[in-house]
Structures are given as structure tokens and as C-alpha cells.
Computed example of a mutant assay.
Amino acid sequence: MQLDQTHVKVRLRTMAEIGDLALIMVRRYPAAILVGFATGAVFWALLDLLVLAWIPITESSYGLDDEEAVWEIIRYLAWMGLLVMLQAPVAGVLSTLYLGLAVFEQRPTWASVRTEAKRGFKRWFWKLGIVRFALPPVIFLACRWGQPASGFWDAFVPLVILLWVSLVRASSPFMPEILLLEQCPIRSKSPDVITASRRSKSLHGPMAGDLSGRFISVSCVLVILLFSIGYSLLWARGISFGRWDVMNLFVLLVIYPFSLWCVAGISVMVRILNYLDCRIRLEGWEVELAVRAEAMRQFGEEPLAVATEAAS
């Protein structure tokens, strides 16, 4: 492993350059999306449909163009969009590990990626799956299965969750990388150990304002991308089968969730590239890699892979 010969050029980038590089990464490492992200996304997508699909299915029996059905469909669309947003980081665990290794290796093996994911399962699932609300809303919706729409439970509660998650994501977006790539423990009795919370403060604190601005910018672009993907799929369906209607089960149960997960996969790419850029700006990471690579050549020492160690 040559630490100064990375497959992604380690240098400062603007947000526009990061967006371009994310699309290049999708083309260069399609397995990160088609295999890594899809593996995690399929589980969560099926779980989401299990707790939400009954809404459009039930309403379709009465007619989806009914006035009362419109509010139920809005309820379905809102909850589905929120769930995918919450679950994207935990669904992208394998992609994050794969891309982290791909910076230094041409083609990481999925065996090594799965081994790393299993080794730290309790740590990252607790933080990303429970604390950051990927699983609790699913349980909540399962308890409300078959219940009519409620202004409090289906409008106020998801809005509060959205605002809270947006605040957390904007202030500390790189928690998946801290847990998966740097492998920081959640807790430690030793004051010398860099825990996830300490690392988060040191990484996110100095760039809190910039990271919040980037979060808003990326979110707006991803929303536009969602509409673009959804419209493209609707157009392809219309050209292929002559079906141009929007309000039907296929669109609600297949095209809409699929569009959401496509955007979620791209967001994982953008996040990890932002993480690399943040480390370069704060820690001069490109200089560290060059120094460590030279030490490795001169003294024959084999340091831990930078992509999978705790930050020094």
C-alpha cells in the first residue's frame, strides 16, 4: 500500500468539484453502489414497505384520486422520504468501507469489507441505527399499522424528527466515517483514547458553519436530483408501456422508493468525499500521507491503513 499514491487525488476541492468527483466515483467504482449500497438498502427498503405499503394498497381499493386518499398518499410519501433519509448512512456502511479502502487500493475485496463491517457491528449499528433514528421510526410505524392519518402523529412528529436529524447531520455529518474508517470507540475508560464524541468535536467543531452550509447545499441538489431521477423513470415507463399516469401503485411502491434510494446512494459518495476534504483542510492530510509513505519506504515500517485507523 503506497499511502502517497492514492486512487483519489488528495487535495482541496470546492463543492462543485466534489459533486463532479462523486459522479466519477460512481462510474469508476460501480460496485460500491450496485453491490455495497444495494445490499444494505434492500433490507431497509423491504422493511419500509412492510410498514408503509398498506397505505397506498388500501387507498387503491377506493380509488387513488379520491380526496381523502390524497392526504393518505401524502402521508405515505412523507414518511417514506423521511425513512430513507434516516436510513441512508446505515444502509451505506459497506459502501463507506469499500470507498474508504478504494482510496488506497485499486479494488478492495468484499470479503475484507464484510469482515470490517461485522467486527464493528455493535458500535456502528447503535450509533447510526438507534441513536440516529434509523430503526425507531420503523417500530413506531409498525405500531400504527392500519391507523388513519393523524395531524399529530403523521405531521408534527415527522416534522420534529426531520428538524432534529437535520440539525444533527448538519453539525456532525461524518459520524459514519469516524465509526467505520477511523474506528473510534463510542466509550472508553482511558482518557487517552479518542472516542467517537471527542473525534467528532475535533473534526466538526472548527468547521461547523461551513459544514452546515454544505449540508444545506447538498440537500437542495439531492432534492433536485430526486425529481430528475423520478421524472426519468416515469418518462421511460411512459415510452415503454404507454402508461403516463402518476397516481398508481407501481409508481408509489416501486419508482418513488427506488428514486429515493438512488439519491441516498449518491449522498454516501458525496459525504465521504466531503470527509476527505474536511480532513485535508483541518489536518493537512495530504502532507501526513506523504510523510508516512516515506517513513514506510525508508524504515520498512507498515503503519495501519489510514482509511481504517483512529485519527492521531
Rank of each mutant, 00 (worst) to 15 (best):
M25K: 07
W54F: 07
V165R: 13
A38W: 04
L252P: 08
A295T: 02
M296E: 12
R214S: 07
R297S: 07
M85Y: 08
I139R: 04
P30M: 07
Y256C: 01
F121W: 14
V160Y: 01
S166D: 05
D65A: 09
Y256M: 06
G19A: 07
L249S: 02
Q147K: 08
T96L: 07
Q106W: 04
R198W: 12
Y275V: 01
R237D: 08
A69W: 09
S312W: 12
I266M: 14
W244K: 01
T115W: 06
I178C: 04
T39K: 04
I130Q: 05
A31E: 13
I161M: 12
I24P: 01
R132W: 06
V103A: 11
A293Q: 12
V84Q: 00
W164V: 14
L86Q: 09
L234C: 13
Y275P: 00
L282V: 04
H204F: 08
V251W: 09
R279G: 00
V93L: 10
G300P: 02
Q2D: 14
A142Q: 06
L99N: 08
R292C: 01
I74K: 06
C278T: 15
W126M: 13
L12S: 14
L252K: 08
Y98V: 08
S172Y: 08
V221Y: 11
W54S: 02
L82F: 01
F299P: 00
I24L: 15
L181C: 12
